[in-house]
Amino acid sequence: MKKPNYISGLIIIIIAGFFYSLTFNFPKLENQLIGAEFMPRVYSVMLIILGSILLIQTFRNKEESDEQENTMKYSIGAMLFVILYVVVIPYIGFYISTFLLVLGLLLFSKVKNKILLITIPVGTSLFIFVFFQILLKVSIPMGTLFS
């Protein structure tokens, strides 16, 4: 956990510093003791302090048990799938992209059962159609390619 702690500590300090610097663009009213900038400054300063504490703690803590790193690539793979999914929905519409996403994820997690590979993607799209589009009347995007 040492390296992630250093990285996350630094990221937090940088983001908090960025937000802190932005507060100087906020207008300052004469008659107000505490304006719009006060709380964001308190929070970002606290984050900078806590981020530094995390860095120091990690530095002083010599040996900390390392967590297993083996499973991350499948999680990141799934994220890439979903990012792609969200990107293509406006173009090819919700139903086709959902079918492809679910099928892709099933194949990605090495599901070999052919019945599952067909029923789950179709079933999911169908469920969204019946439940969200018909019952809850959500206007599901159909995609620019088809409209």
């Binding site: 799934a78 979903v82 999914y85 969200v86 929905i89 919700f94 959902t98 996403l101 679910v102 994820l105 099933l106 997690s109 090495k110 599901v111 599952l116 789950i120 993607p121 999911t124 969204i128 969200f132 809850l136 959500v138 599901i140 995007p141």
Partner: peptide
């Protein structure tokens, strides 16, 4: 879980959108 995870992810997207 292999079957559930894709469905959950789709529901997250639809849910946020709706």
């Amino acid at each position: 879980t292999t079957v559930l995870t894709p469905i959950i992810l789709v529901l997250c997207v639809v849910g946020a959108y709706s």
